[in-house]
Amino acid sequence: MRLTVQALGVLPDLAAGDDLVDLLLAAWPDGPLDGDVLVVSSKAVAKVEGRTLRADRDDVVAAETDREVARRGDLRVARTRHGLVLAAAGVDESNTAAGTVVALPLDPDASARGLRSELATRTGRNVAVVVTDTAGRPWRTGQTDIAIGVAGLEPLRDLAGEPDAWGRPLVVTAPAVADELAGSAGLVLAKAARTPGAVVSGLARLVLPPGEHGPGAAALVRP
């Protein structure tokens, strides 16, 4: 198996109402192929969906918080309405104009479905979409990208019941495929350089048939 991850080209500074699909296609060197997976940062999606807010950051964090999980000084870790547990409830003031913050898309799975459908309409290609955000991990330093919106692939591969190399049945093995794709794309994305999109090729077997979106990243959230 061969897997390739390629960053798309530079995008202009994004604003509400911009045609993100058109901009991504213009930055896609050879255009999409059936079975490709488009990975795009949630900030790019949020900006075109009008989630750039000129407001006090703490007020926006409070509005985006469903439940505060932890606090240390000014740092708050919160569960969002999406069920995500993120620093500052996913509210970000980097790579945006002074005095503004960017909140997460209201429904990242719907955003992913919209991008997938538009790509199919405009190109005729069957492309899966993963919308990502950067998150920390409990008891580990550093951050990695995770999937917060998914369309066109199963975000989890449930391997329970399948045999391991010694013939014993697996019990709880369920790779978070969408998160693995998000993390791999994070290696080539350069958000500060306005390259918020990447394409992962070589995993066509995981992409659902045209018109099928799957359960979305919501399936990755524990109840």
Rank of each mutant, 00 (worst) to 15 (best):
L203T: 04
T141Q: 12
T173W: 07
D109Q: 06
Q6D: 14
A128T: 14
V37F: 00
R51M: 13
S184H: 12
V131F: 09
T195N: 03
L153R: 08
H82C: 02
D164C: 06
N95E: 15
W139M: 15
P32E: 11
R113C: 09
A89D: 04
A185C: 05
R205G: 12
L208T: 07
R81K: 12
S117P: 02
V131Y: 12
A55V: 01
G186Q: 07
A87K: 08
P105G: 12
G186V: 01
V188Q: 07
I146H: 09
L20V: 00
A44S: 04
V69W: 10
D19G: 05
P138H: 14
L11N: 02
P12N: 10
V21I: 06
G152T: 01
L159Q: 05
R71S: 12
L20P: 00
V39A: 15
D74V: 06
V207S: 00
V188H: 06
D58C: 04
R140I: 02
P155K: 13
Q143Y: 14
V171I: 12
G186H: 07
I146E: 08
L33I: 11
A204V: 01
L75F: 14
D164M: 06
L75N: 12
L11H: 00
S41Q: 05
A160T: 08
D179S: 10
T100E: 14
T144I: 07
A89I: 06
P12R: 08
D36Q: 12
A16L: 05
V221G: 00
A190K: 03
N126S: 03
Q6G: 11
P138R: 11
L156C: 04
R125G: 00
V61R: 02
G17C: 11
A78L: 00
D74E: 13
A160P: 00
V188Y: 03
P210T: 15
V85A: 01
V130G: 10
D92T: 13
R72E: 15
V85Q: 03
L159D: 05
D66W: 11
A147K: 03
E212Y: 09
R57Q: 05
A165K: 09
H213Y: 10
E68G: 06
A147Q: 08
D66I: 08
G197C: 01
A26Y: 08
G50T: 02
A182T: 03
R51F: 10
D66T: 07
M1E: 13
L23Q: 03
Q6I: 04
T123G: 05
A217D: 03
A110P: 02
D18K: 02
V69K: 05
L153N: 12
V45E: 04
A78C: 00
A192F: 04
A218D: 13
D13M: 10
P169A: 14
L181Q: 03
